[in-house]
Each structure stands twice: as structure tokens, then as C-alpha cells.
Amino acid sequence: MAQDDPRTLVSTEWLAAHMRDPDLRILDGSCYMPGSGRDAKAEYHAGHIPGARFFDIDDISDSRSDLPHMAPPIEKFASRMRAMGVGDGHQVVVYDGSGQFSAARVWWLFKLMGQKDVAVLDGGLPKWVAEGREIEDLPPMVRDRHITVRRQAHLVKDVTQVSAACKLRDYEIIDARSPGRFRGEEEEPRAGLRAGHIPGSKNVHYSSLLNDDQTMKSPKETRAIFEAAGVDLGKPVITTCGSGVTAAILSLALERMGKDDHSLYDGSWTEWGMSPTLPVATGDDDV
């Protein structure tokens, strides 16, 4: 079992013990891949951890962008959190319906907005349910709460910054997609994207950092996985994936390892793969 840390990852046991804390806020941050056949919001309404609010990753995003669920402007984030009753002085715990897929993205968004007391529920809703713990279908009682937002620009990278890092090799770029997608051997789930990866990037599939029950492996184990993939942990890191969701699982693992010089490429492969002017490597090429 992972060591509980209210700023990164907490166990189902920890959450059960703190359920009645007045300043605890639980968020269902479920989001699924296109074509999965799952409806995150409908599943939330059918049953969720008591008191949980639904954090809609697609809605709480930058509506001005053509890319999926890009980080929202600070004003929109603050407005949505106030309306959800999430604000200053709260300990936030985020889970998702896959166990560990999109909750880390919500964790990263809170960090981007300057919030520190936020953690992912290790193993998520599946582990909670498997242990016979309570779920409900009642909407939570919500009161507006002020939230102070200070955007931490160093935690996010745009395409220009990633392109420079690709050329200079002064960052380690780590891709959380499957090996088949990374090598360009599998089709992308979104139409119109080229196959392959950012030249010079390393592949650490997010699932390799998880146990069979979707709990996260220990910091010692995840460090060994990054190193086995050829990642130089002495360099700052940029995490990436298909659309900026599972990249946050890598970010969470790095944070738990004590490595805090990491940022996330928000546009990820959805942006890079659609641009005909950006270089793409395939197979095991490192060009």
C-alpha cells in the first residue's frame, strides 16, 4: 500500500478515515477515451463516493481552443470551483472510474492553479467499491467557497516550448502512450493524426507504473521504470501523451519520487500529430 500523502496520493483507508472532515472535498474526475462506450457523467449520477462532486474535464477547459480539454483560464477555473463549493482551506481528493486514468489530470490542474492540498485516490472508485465501501446517488450539498488561484506557468508547456526542447535535448520528453502508438504501429484514436512520437522522446506507458488493482507502484519501483526506459532523471522533464490526460500520471509518479522539475505538454500528440510542419519519429528511432 502506498504511503499516504495528502499532496499526491492517498489510500482508500485514508479517505474512509477522513470522510467526515469538514474541509474535505471529493471530486469524481472520470473521463474516458473516445469510443470507450462509457459516459462519465451518467456513471457519476448512478453512483459515486458520498459527497463527491463531478469534475467535468471537458467542460472545465479552454473553450477557445480546438484541442480537447486544454487547461482553462484561471477565471473559469475559479468560477467553476466556487460554484462546486471547492476553495481555500480545502483538502481535495480526486478519483476516477477506471482506477487510475484521468484523476491525475485533475490533480495536475489544481497544481497548475496554485493549489497544494490535493491528492489522487489510489485505485480509484473500482478499489473503493471492491472493498465494499459506501456509494450514493444523491447530489452533494454545495455552498459557494472562495478560491485563490495563482497559475504556476512552469508546470505547463506549449508546442513552441516542446519544439525547442526537442531540438536542444535539454529536457527529457516522456510519452505515456502505449508502445504501439509511440512507435507508430497502432492507429491513433483521434482521426487525422500522424502516427509516431516526438523525436528524442522516451516511452513510459502509464500502465507500467500501476499495479494490477490500478494502485500506483512505489516511488522506488517507478524510478526504476523510468530509468529502464532510458530517462535521464538529472534533466527536467516534460510529460506528454495523446491529449494531456495520462501524461499527468507520469507527473504524479515523478512528484512522488521527489522530482519536482516536471511540466506537462498540454496539447500533447493531438496537437503535435496534426501539424505537418513538426518532425515525427517512428519505430525506435531517436532522430
Rank of each mutant, 00 (worst) to 15 (best):
Gln214Phe: 10
Tyr171Gly: 00
His90Leu: 07
Gly123Phe: 04
Ala229Gly: 06
Ser79Gly: 07
Gly114Val: 04
Thr215Met: 02
Tyr32Thr: 04
Glu136Asp: 10
Lys127Gly: 01
Asn203Arg: 06
Ala248Val: 12
Leu109His: 00
Arg82Leu: 03
Phe110Asp: 00
Val86Lys: 06
Gly180Trp: 02
Gly89Thr: 14
Ala130Gly: 12
Asp137Leu: 00
His154Trp: 03
Ala176Thr: 09
Arg7Val: 01
Leu15Asp: 08
Arg256Ile: 05
Thr277His: 13
Gly244Thr: 02
Ile198Glu: 07
Gly85Tyr: 01
Phe101Thr: 11
Ser61Lys: 02
Ser243Glu: 07
Glu13Pro: 01
Ala104Lys: 03
Pro34Cys: 06
Ile49Tyr: 05
Arg80Glu: 13
Gly192Tyr: 06
Pro189Leu: 08
Ser275Pro: 00
Tyr95Val: 10
Asp266Leu: 00
Ser98Trp: 13
His197Phe: 08
Phe226Thr: 02
Gly51His: 10
Arg256Ser: 08
Trp272Gln: 10
Ile173Asp: 04
Leu264Cys: 03
Glu221Asn: 04
Arg25Ala: 05
Ala17Glu: 13
Arg80Thr: 04
Ala130Asn: 12
His197Val: 10
Arg53His: 12
Pro72Glu: 11
Arg169Ala: 13
Trp14Gly: 01
Thr239Leu: 01
Tyr95Ser: 09
Gly267Phe: 01
Arg169Asn: 12
Phe226Gly: 02
Glu271Gly: 04
Val162His: 09
Asp284Ser: 13
Ser65Thr: 08
Ala153Phe: 06
Ser36Cys: 07
Ala2Arg: 12
Ala281Asn: 14
Glu75Leu: 05
Gly85Ala: 02
Asp260Trp: 02
Ser98Gln: 14
Ser218Thr: 11
Glu271Asn: 06
Leu250His: 12
Lys259Thr: 10
Val237Cys: 14
Asp122Ser: 14
Trp108Ile: 00
Arg82Asp: 03
Ile74Thr: 14
Asp58Trp: 06
Lys41Leu: 15
Ile74Ala: 15
Ala164Tyr: 06
Met33Ala: 15
Phe77Ile: 09
Ser98Leu: 14
Val156His: 07
Arg151Lys: 14
Ile135Gly: 00
Asp56Leu: 09
Tyr206Gln: 07
